[in-house]
Each structure stands twice: as C-alpha cells, then as structure tokens.
Design a protein around this nucleic acid. Structure first.
Lengths: 168, 168
DNA sequence: ATATATTTTCAAAAATTTTTGAAAGTTCGA
DNA sequence: TCGAACTTTCAAAAATTTTTGAAAATATAT
C-alpha cells in the first residue's frame, strides 16, 4: 500500500472510530491527520487535505485544543498559526481518560450520590431495586475513578509491565 | 427526593450519558428503566413509561438484546413477551466491554496491521512518522486487548481487590 | 493609522440520526 | 382454519448534529 492511500485509510477509520465514542468525525479526522504528519500544519493545510470548510476546521481545532490533544505552535517569522498533535500515544490516551473522567464519570457519581438518598421504605420492592442498582453503579464507578487516577499518573512501561503480569 | 422523581432523573441522565458513548438516547433510557424495575416489563409498559412509539421501542429492545444486556422473559400463561435487564453491574460492564472490543477494537487492530506494511523508505520523514504512530497505537491496542480479555473473565471481587491494591 | 493577513463567529443549509405509526407479518388459541 | 393478539418492518417525518461560508473581529507589518 502506498503512503497516500494508507494515510487516507487511517484518517477515515479514525473518524469512523471516533463516532463510536461520541466524538465527531471531523474532529477525529483532524486529530488523525496531525498525528501522522511530522511537522505542524496550518488551518489552510488541514482544510485542503481534508476538504472541509474554514469554520469547521477552526471549530474542531479549538475543540482538540480544549481536550489537550493539540497545541498551537508559533513558527518564528511566520504570521500564521501552526498546529501539532501530541505523538506519544500513551500520553494521548491518558489525556483522553483524564478529560472524560472529569466530564462524564465525576458528574455521574455526584448524581448517583443524590439518587441513593431516595425517600421511602427500603423494604418496598421498587425502592429496594432502585437503591440496589444505584448503589452498585456508584460503588463500581468510584472504584473505576480511583483506578483511573492512578493510571493517569502511571508511566506506560509501568502500566504495561505490571498490569499484564498481573493479568496472566 | 421521591422515587418517581429519582427514577426519572436516573433514566434521563443515563440517556444523556449514553450519547457520550455512541449509544442512542432511547436505547440507554430503556436500559435504565429495565435496570431499576424489579419485574420484567412488556413493550407496552416501556412505551408508556418513556413515552415513545412502538417501532422505536421494538427496535431498541432488539438492539439491547443484541448487546446481551436484556433478555426476553416468558411468563407462564401469558401471550405477551416480557423483557428484563441483567442487574449485576459488573456483568453488565463486562458484557459491554466484550462487545465493544469485538466490534471496535479488533477491527481497528486488523486495519493497523495492514497500514503498518506501507511501502517506501523508512528513512523518509513522512513514512517514518506514519509507521511510528501506527505501530505505537497497534502496540498499545494489543496490550489493551489482552488486558480486557482477562478482565472479561475476572470476578468483580478479584478485579477490585487486586487492581486497587496494585494501584496503591 | 491604515491596509492586509489571519482567525473567529454564527445563522442558515446540509447531512445524519432518530422517531413515528401504519401496514405487514407472525403466533397461537379456539 | 380463522381471527385476535402481538411483534416487526420500514418509508416518511421530525429532531438533532454537523458543516458551510460570509461577515465580523483581531492581529500585525509598514
């Protein structure tokens, strides 16, 4: 397979992959493009390579920056802004985990804390079923939260080495 | 908080939560409803409680069954079908992991295997950048795949106990 | 200060996903 | 075998999400 075709495939699959994770196609594609491009790109480079509009490009680059996956790069003597993605995949994964934990897991756990306090007799079948589920999700969620905290701090070698050994 | 309100909140948050994970709102809401309801429900019960159409209900129940999260229950002497969700959250999580691994991770790893074989001189900066990223994603992906395999087989106690200890 | 290059915004359009509901299909008891 | 109860399908409608592109805002060189 030629590089051009391979790049194209990578970008398009990464985009499709993203949609299974609540990330929009274009954002994932821009990320993919920046991942496989050794030098930083401008907004115009991205527009041209992915065939998308200026507004769309701008919006999704900004979102990638919010997620901490892409950064602005200033080239000396150049007016334009350049963009570059973190290339260390372990760092990328940790960053995504960190953000999703903050944006999704933590708010969910807060809600479950409230829902667990539902009024009424715990011997009532309906109340019991509700509290049981809420409590068990909460428990597993808090466990996952702690585990992810440690993962976020871990080095790749440590993680892969120990975890795989443990899981043998 | 009253049970009715708490249920409502749980269902609606679970739905919103689902959309961040590429699952449609209604499917997640039906799942939530079945999770907190002690007895199996019919299609009509679900339609009524969530205020959704017959077709929508039918389609999403089927999808939940495909995911292995809900099962048909036959009530003796009843013509109607009833539906019930697995209530053990650890089992639910393992089932979701199992399915997503099969549907998403494994195809992605297959693609990366192909993309790694890109033609051309590895000293070319562009080829090198491409192969480096593809290889590192592949490596981490395969590692994750193995880890998830063990997790799928694990008991909750084992998992929580060991993993949390390891991560201290 | 002005002109020009560049980035950002956002209302409207396009694309995509989800939902509806009526019709077709199936099952099962009498 | 018939008919009622129930389930499934799917084209069209509705809702939602994404994209566009032109105008506004901002930054910078002269």
């Amino acid at each position: 397979m030629k590089l051009t075709e391979a790049k194209q495939q990578f970008i398009s699959s990464w985009g499709a992959f993203g949609t299974h994770w609540g990330i929009n196609r274009t954002m994932a594609q821009i990320h993919a493009l920046l991942l496989i491009t050794p030098d930083p790109l401008t907004q115009d480079d991205i527009m041209e390579q992915l065939n998308i509009s200026r507004g769309n490009t701008n919006m999704n680059i900004r979102e990638l920056i919010n997620w901490g996956l892409v950064e602005r790069v200033l080239m000396t003597g150049e007016r334009k802004e350049y963009f570059s993605a973190e290339k260390d995949i372990w760092k990328v994964v940790k960053q995504i985990v960190k953000e999703r934990k903050k944006r999704e897991l933590e708010p969910m756990l807060k809600l479950l804390d409230q829902l667990e306090e539902v009024e009424g007799d715990k011997r009532d079948k309906n109340i019991k079923a509700f509290v049981d589920i809420v409590s068990s999700i909460k428990k597993l969620g808090h466990q996952a939260d702690k585990t992810l905290d440690v993962m976020i701090k871990a080095e790749e070698n440590w993680f892969v080495g120990n975890l795989v050994k443990l899981f043998k």
